[in-house]
């Protein structure tokens, strides 16, 4: 009797927590960018502009939710939901602390990879359903980009799985008690970080959106809450990738003194800030450059990483 209730409580807590963090990120990112770009950022609504999120929410909920008459209506409506659903589902497998996780899947990592593959449909379908040439180009770029980075994203994690001997994230964290995987798997970490940037479609990989080239890319035709879903979906994605980096390479909840949940949050927050800093500093790649970067550099490197890791494990045993 106690177990299902506990699960439901955790589930609701994670859902609310993740959405709150994602919404808070909208404010945080704008403030951080303001700080790094010698300007203020939102500082009017509430103390330090912290009510900016509420203001944004009111705006986005009350805006006219317009569907262009030329759009493919059902697909146009479903597309923004896909990204939110798939990224939220991925949180199911993340162990925030011992005992605080929704499910402990023994194929947890595979589940995440599956969900991230699905999420690209959101962007590709949005681009297609809008029946707008800019959106279409954005959708095409998203599909090509997905093919480019998805492969090495999966491969970059194989080293971690080999070391931990499991796909379960809880066991992966447990396996890092001696040393965080970022040290033996540094290459894997770097590759996953890059793939994560691409997964969340942020600079330097924000090609499907590419404001200066494609107006707003795949979500050019979206407004109101449907646009808001893409917007929040991006921040949920950032939180997800940061939480995964913390879990897979930086020991998850492990850490001295502070409670495990706090450690997990500190680590996640650190990488979120890293994501924002990257956005503030880098220009955007061109689409063919991204593809050749993925296939010609990242893929061989991640394969090399697997071979070397395997050889070392073999030699050690």
């Amino acid at each position: 009797m106690g177990e299902p209730i506990r699960s439901i409580i955790i589930l609701i807590a994670v859902l609310v927590g993740v959405l709150a963090i994602a919404a808070g990120l909208i404010w945080l990112e704008r403030r951080m960018l303001g700080l790094w770009q010698d300007r203020y950022g939102p500082n009017r609504a509430g103390p330090f502009g912290s009510l900016q999120v509420a203001a944004d929410m009111i705006k986005i909920f009350t805006k006219e939710d317009w569907i262009p008459p030329f759009a493919d209506k059902p697909v146009f409506v479903i597309a923004p939901a896909i990204i939110v659903v798939t990224t939220l589902l991925s949180f199911a497998i993340i162990p925030f602390a011992p005992g605080i996780e929704i499910v402990n899947l023994n194929i947890g990592l595979l589940f995440f990879l599956a969900m991230s593959s699905l999420s690209v449909y959101s962007v590709a379908l949005a681009g297609w359903a809008s029946d707008n040439k800019y959106s279409l180009l954005g959708g095409l770029r998203a599909a090509a980009q997905m093919l480019g980075y998805e492969v090495f994203m999966g491969l970059s994690l194989v080293g971690v799985v080999m070391l931990a001997g499991s796909f379960s994230l809880r066991e992966i964290v447990e396996a890092q008690r001696k040393v965080w995987f970022v040290i033996p798997q540094f290459l894997g970490f770097v590759i996953f970080l890059i793939a994560g940037l691409a997964e969340t479609r942020r600079i330097p990989f924000d090609l499907p959106e590419a404001e200066n080239e494609l107006v707003a890319g795949y979500h050019t035709e979206y407004s109101g809450m449907k646009f808001g879903m893409f917007f929040v979906g991006e921040y949920i994605g950032v939180t997800l990738i940061s939480a995964l980096i913390a879990t897979l390479f930086f020991g998850g909840w492990l850490g001295p003194l502070l409670p495990p949940l706090l450690w997990m949050m500190i680590k996640t927050f650190f990488f979120i800030c890293g994501f924002i800093l990257v956005r503030a500093s880098l220009p955007r790649l061109r689409y063919d450059q991204l593809l050749s970067f993925g296939w010609k550099l990242m893929l061989p490197l991640s394969l090399l990483n697997i071979v070397v890791t395997g050889a070392i494990i073999l030699a050690a045993s």
Partner: peptide, 16 residues
């Protein structure tokens, strides 16, 4: 020009 290439920050420094 930097912004055209996707770099977000330079334009703020230069306008300052």
């Amino acid at each position: 020009f930097a912004q055209d290439l996707g770099a977000m920050s330079p334009v703020f420094y230069m306008f300052n």
